[in-house]
Structure formats: structure tokens, C-alpha cells
Amino acid sequence: MTRRHAALGFLGLALVVYPFVDRNNSHVDFLANAGAFILLALGLNIVVGFAGLLDLGYAAFFAIGSYSYAMLASQQFGIHVPFWLMLLIAPVVAALFGLLLGAPTLRLRGDYLAIVTLGFGEIVPQTFLNLSQYTNGPNGISSLDQPSLFGHAFGFSATPYYYVLLGLIALGILAARNLQNSRLGRAWMAIREDELAARHMGINTTATKLAAFALGASFSGLAGVVYAAKLDLVSPDEFGFNVSVLVLSMLVLGGMGNIWGVIVGSFVLSFINSFLLPQSTSLAHAAGFVNVDFTNYRFMLYGVILVTMMLFRPEGLIPSRQRAAEFHEAILDPALAAQEQSEYEGVAR
């Protein structure tokens, strides 16, 4: 057993016993919410980090997962699919939507793909909003079924959700690692590096990108189910462009393509968002500055992270070795970049 394994084991153990040590439910609640975002980030990392496809509508799959749970496990239609079963169904549904979106669009060059996914990300919540006879429109769907395990309902404590998410994240990490070191993972990297050469290796680039889209979407669908059940409510305004950009910022901050980087990035941003900003606001209020509200600077924060990281440390805080090399070679060597650029254009077929 290596030191790395030991450290991981220790971290895992600490996370398992944490709720017994810290009896403050709001802390566990925060960790559970952060966990949902870690799951989202792990999924988006497959699409953006591994396959190099910029998906700006990722929150749409989060919405699809959440609404699947809300519609199939509540009084809305009187359907009550068990939570645990939904954890299997929702990722499949989200993946199907990923295929639906990806099939016609993945032939597009990178930046067009980004825009189309953005459009999709707008259409999906808008559709949930507009189809009010099924979704209650802006009010959303509330009083979702409470998950239960061996007859014990989860209740309104965050702790059971915390454990569910911990388990899902562990599985997610395992899945992402497996994918990275596999035929599929190499194909993603190859496409990112040189799509035309990848085709000459016999890689079906469209199918391979679709796989990234579908797998990424399934993580998002999974996170959606847990998030909806935990919140006991879904409404269309939780899944806008800003959520997609938030998850992207987590990747950029932590390090696209690096599983641990992405986890750290999403944890740090969640911490700032739900802890640091509100806490410092209350501190400021207590100190007499009643007009400040740091939470208003949230979007500024995402923006500043995206811009400054791209300018000064595009590989993220905890980079993947490969990504770091890609970014720096390209920035230091304009000739190579120009060559890659022209080759990229040549790929359009």
C-alpha cells in the first residue's frame, strides 16, 4: 500500500465519521450540497476535461435529473418510483437527452458546439417553465417523495443525503479513473489532440464524443435526483446558464482533466459561495456595514476566476500534467499553435 492509498483511506474514513463529530446540521448540509456539485463537476470533467468539448448547457441535464425525480416520485402524477430506483433511471434519462442533443451537433466545430449547448441549456428550463400543466410552471414541483432505507425515512436531516452523495462521489471517481485509463479514454484524448489523426486510428469520432456527452450527462442526472430529493422541491430557475458556468468555473479553478483538481475546485467554490460570502456578509453587518452584501459579487467571482485562471494559470490549481503541457506549449510557441489551428480547420469534414 502506497502513501497515496493511505492518505486516501484516511480521507475516506474522516469523511465517513465527520457527521458524528460535527453535530452542526448546517455544516453537514453544506457538505451535502457541495457533494452534489462535486458530482456535477466530475461529470462535466468527462466532457470538457477528457474529451475537450465545451458544454455550456450542462445544467440542463441537472434539470432533467431533478425533474425526472419530481415527476416520477411525488403526488404530481401520483407515481412513486423509489429513490434508489431513480438513481438508476435518471442517469439513463439524462444520458438519452445527451445523445439527443449530441447526435446532430457533435459534428460542429468546438465553439459552435459551445453555443448550441448553451442554447439547449436555455431551452430545457424554459420548457419546464412553459409546460406548466405538467410542471406547475414557475412554482415548480414540491413535496417530493422522501427516500427511505430499510424503512427509515431520510427526514429533513442532511446526514443521509451526505452519505448517499459520499458513496456516489466515490463511485464517480472510480468511474472517471477507469474511463481515463481505457480504450475510450485514450480515444477522447486523441480526439482532443488531433481529431483527424484520431480518425485514422479507426476512432469513430462522433460516437466517441457522444459517449462523453452521454456519460457526462448521466452524472448530472444522478446529481439532479439527489439534489431534488434533498431540497424537496424543483423549480425551473435553479438550472440557468449561471449554474453551467459555476460548474465550469469549478473545473477551470481546480484543473480541467484532473479528477482531484476538479474535486478541490468545486469544493473551494462551494465553500466560498455558501460559506465565505454569507459569513463575511454577516460579519460586515455585525461590524456596522449594513449595506454590504458580498453574495452579490458571486457572478463577479466566477467571471474573475475564469478570466484570471485562463490568463495566468489555465491548467488550474491542481493540473493534469498533460493539460498543463498543452496550455503552456501553445502559449509559448505561437508557431505550433498556428499550425494546430490550421490543422484544426482542415479537420472540418
Partner: peptide
Amino acid sequence: FAFMSALDNVMTGRHA
């Protein structure tokens, strides 16, 4: 594939 190892390059060549 410039930023993949030589070994990974060859393994990718086996894809088909």
C-alpha cells in the same frame, strides 16, 4: 498525439 506518451500513442493506434 503530441501530449500523450509514446506508449499511449501506439496503444491508441490499436483502437480499431
